[in-house]
Every structure is written in C-alpha cells, then in structure tokens.
Design a protein around this nucleic acid. Structure first.
Lengths: 247, 247
DNA sequence: CGGCTTTTTGATGTCCGTCAATCAGTGTGG
DNA sequence: CCACACTGATTGACGGACATCAAAAAGCCG
C-alpha cells in the first residue's frame, strides 16, 4: 500500500495551474454563511465552484422521506463543485455550512474560461481526483467497517487533512458537526454514534466532547481503522499562507 | 429532484471534446482480459485511462485482512482512470475484470497531451463528474438503505446505465458478478445477498438467477430504492455505434 | 465422474435501530 | 434571576436486520 502522489511529469504544470486557479478564486469576494446555511442548493440553476476559507461544510443528499446521506465533509482549503463547470446541479445534492463559514465562488463560466489553460485543466482534474480518492476511502469504511472503525476512519481522515494543510499541529481539533450529522455521514444512527463514542472514550482512544476532538491514542485509532489507506494523495493541494487563512 | 444535465453553454464544446477523446481511444489497440484479470493493479507505476468496450469490470479496494470493498462497477462504454493523468496509482486501488472484457487504453501522457485542447479537458471533467455522481448515488444507498433497498438501487442503476447506452432495450440483462462481488459492493455478506434476492424473487420484484437479471416490477423496484435520484447525468456520454460495440 | 466455485439454507448470536425518557447546555423573555 | 423552550447528547429496554458458522446442494468444467 503506497501513497499515491502526483504524476512526476505533470507536477510543474500542476503547480502553475494551482497558482492560476487560486489567483482566480482570491479575486472573488469572500462570502459568508451561518450555520446550516445552504450554500449550493439542490435546484441551483447556476452552481459555482467553491473554495472554502474558514469553517466546515458538507455535501449532502436528502431522501424524500427525510433521511439524509452526507457524502463528503469539506474543510478550509477544500475546493468543491468543480464539476459544476460542465454539469448542472440536481439530484437533491446540496452543500451546507456546518458552522460559520467563509468561502469564495468561481462561476461555472469563469471556470470554463480558466480551463482553457491546460495547466489549470490539469489542476482541476487533480482536485477532482483527490476528492474522489477521499470519497473512495470513506466508501470503503462504510462498506466494510463497523461503527467503531467508521468513526476511527472519519476522525483520522479529518485529522490528516487538517494537518496536511497545516491547520493544526497537534492531535486535537475542532469538529463542528453534531452527532446527527456524523450519523448521516457514517450511515448509522445518532444514538449509536453516541454509544460508540463513549466506548472509544472508555478505551482511551479518543475524546469527542462538544465538537472538540482529542486523539489520545493515534496508533490505536489507526488500528481501529486498519487497512484504510492514509489520506495523502498529492502533497499539498491549494496551500494557502496562514495569513490568508486568518483573514 | 431534477435530473442534472450538461451546462448549456458548454454542450457544444463537450461534444467536440468527446469526439476527440473517443478518436484517441479508438486509435489504441483493443486489449482483452479474462475473468478476474487485474487490469490496473494497485502498484501500477504508469496507470492509464480505460475505455471499456465489452464486459464488466469493477474498481476495488482491498483491506489487509482480506476484506474488500468494491467502489464502482464499470460497464461497456464507461471510461475510468482519467485521474491517472495527474495522480499516480496507490491506495490498494485496483481495476479488475468481472468477466471477459475488452478495452482500450490511453496513457497518462497521451491524455495530458490531449487535454491541452480545452474541449477535451471539459469532456474529461464531465466524465469525472458523471462518475462521481454515480458514486454519490451508491454512497447514499449504502448509507441509508437496508439490503433490499441497496440491491434495488444497484439493479436499477445498472439497468438505467445499460439502457441509456442502448445496450439493452428490455428490463432484462446480464450481470456477470458473483454474489460475493455484489456483497462487496453493497456492504453486506454474500449469505445475506442470497437471502435478500430470494425475498425479492418471492415478492415478484426481480429475478436474479445465475447472472441474469429480469426485472419483473420496475415500479416496485423504484419504490424499494425510493428517493435515490435517477441516474441520468448528461444525456449520452461516449456513445458508440452498435457496430463498434459488436466488435 | 471428480473437483471446483457459487449458491442456498439453517441455527445462533450480535450489532445496531427504534422508541422513549432523561439530562445538559443555550438562549429567551417575563 | 428563574421559568421556559429548544437543541443536542446520553442512557435503557427491546426487537430486528444482518453476521457468523457450518453444511449441503447446485452449477460448471475438464
């Protein structure tokens, strides 16, 4: 099990493309959204791509009976909605703020324009590939792990993403998701999330209390999610200086 | 819940891009693989993009303890591995033939070259978006449906994809996947797949016998997978003439 | 016919869902 | 300042969907 990285022959183009893409994003105004704000709605006519700057959000799909599946969790520095450049919205697909967020938008049209530059196109492809990798990883967890393993994989995954983007340096972070949201992400019920978190606390694996995650036993967590490949596709996607993040 | 389609402003470019991409694929020789052949292995140094021509394949991720998750099912006319243009392999990710397959390859380098054409780049983005949409749909099924609903969603999804590509015209098709593979896709056990299929047969919803699927009650199936959005992102990705398919 | 894979079925246990009540934290207004 | 409402988290009791173990039956192939 080897960590997949960028194809060497493309790395220079990818860096340039990233620069151009980021520049385009940063030229857009910073939007904000309160908790539970729908950032991209299911029937959005002109969905845009988003670069998250602060706060957490999630992609979700709601079923008619009120049940909901959360497909992906988005953290600062994540880019999402790149496929909106060519595909319309639809499918009950939403992007919702988990807490107070700020983000920048890039319209589908602007993105299409930018993609005329092959370097940007490659970078966009890489970003979509990374997102897919993340989803694949989560799908594997949902498919083959029990509640404990799924939670371990989730907490580890967020931890690694935050660390990779240098948003944290210690095994402790803020996870602004209610247990109900976690349940919708993990494919179990809120009640079972609560019970399982208690068990993991008793095992002294990890503390999750009121949206604060404290990893007590990193190796133990890794064992609990054993077999899930580490989350390091590509070294540092869309890195931003801390200054910018602090905006 | 509206069916997402292509963004109007890009549809012409997408058609051109599709043409160019298909042309490049068709210039490559037709490879074949027997059942269980590993088409792209986990530690492939130079993974390529693939266009499937005949037969079924699947993307899978194996855990060290022998368990396995199947992330996506690939049918003729599907394109996969486009992200290999920029990301290396890795992560225990494999593409395996489910039965005798034939397919064409496009090397990462050739794909990068092609993507210098913005129309191709847009088309590639669209293809990745469609694949993601498919995975999202499946993830929602896994996250929120019981075994019966998951099977219904799977059988319906394949049915719709085959129909959309005009590979079938009646609600009957060949599904060359063992129940063990289905189980690894659905996140349940082989034994439970068997039992659930029996129940669905008794309900006269669908017959699945030795890799032949006969849908008896299409509306009933839809109800069983109720809430899963239909699978019609973009009208006809990479259509091929029946002649070509019959090769 | 043997040897293999794949499917089926039964018996038994367990993880997780459901229902329901309680509790803690937060904010509101009298 | 304290009742009140509201949301989110916790816990218990119970049942059901699914896993596990094991064996046999059914296809498939040389």
């Amino acid at each position: 099990m080897k960590a997949p990285g960028y194809a060497a022959a493309a790395s220079e183009d990818l860096l340039t493309g990233e620069l151009l893409l980021r520049r385009a994003f940063l030229a857009a105004p910073l939007h904000t959204g309160a908790r539970n704000a729908v950032i991209v709605s299911a029937d959005d006519r002109a969905p845009a791509a988003l670069l998250f700057h602060r706060g957490f959000a999630y992609r979700s799909l709601s079923l008619p009976d009120g049940r909901r599946a959360i497909l992906d969790i988005l953290i600062p520095t994540d880019v999402t909605g790149l496929d909106h450049a060519v595909l319309g919205g639809g499918g009950n697909h939403e992007i919702v703020a988990a807490n107070a967020v700020s983000y920048r938008r890039l319209s589908a049209q602007a993105l299409r324009e930018l993609m005329k530059n092959p370097q940007v196109a490659l970078r966009v492809l890489a970003l979509m590939g990374e997102a897919r990798w993340r989803i694949d990883r989560h799908m594997a967890a949902i498919t083959r792990f029990d509640a404990r393993g799924r939670i371990a994989a989730l907490l580890l995954g967020i931890y690694e993403r935050l660390r990779r983007n240098e948003l944290i340096s210690r095994p402790t972070y803020n996870l602004p998701l209610t247990q109900e949201l976690l349940a919708d992400y993990l494919g179990i019920t809120m009640v079972h999330v609560s019970r399982t978190l208690r068990r993991m606390r008793e095992e002294r694996l990890v503390l999750v209390d009121r949206q604060v995650v404290i990893i007590l036993d990193l190796e133990g967590l890794r064992r609990a999610a054993s077999g899930i490949p580490p989350l390091n596709v590509g070294a540092a996607p869309m890195p931003q200086s801390s200054d910018e993040l602090a905006l």
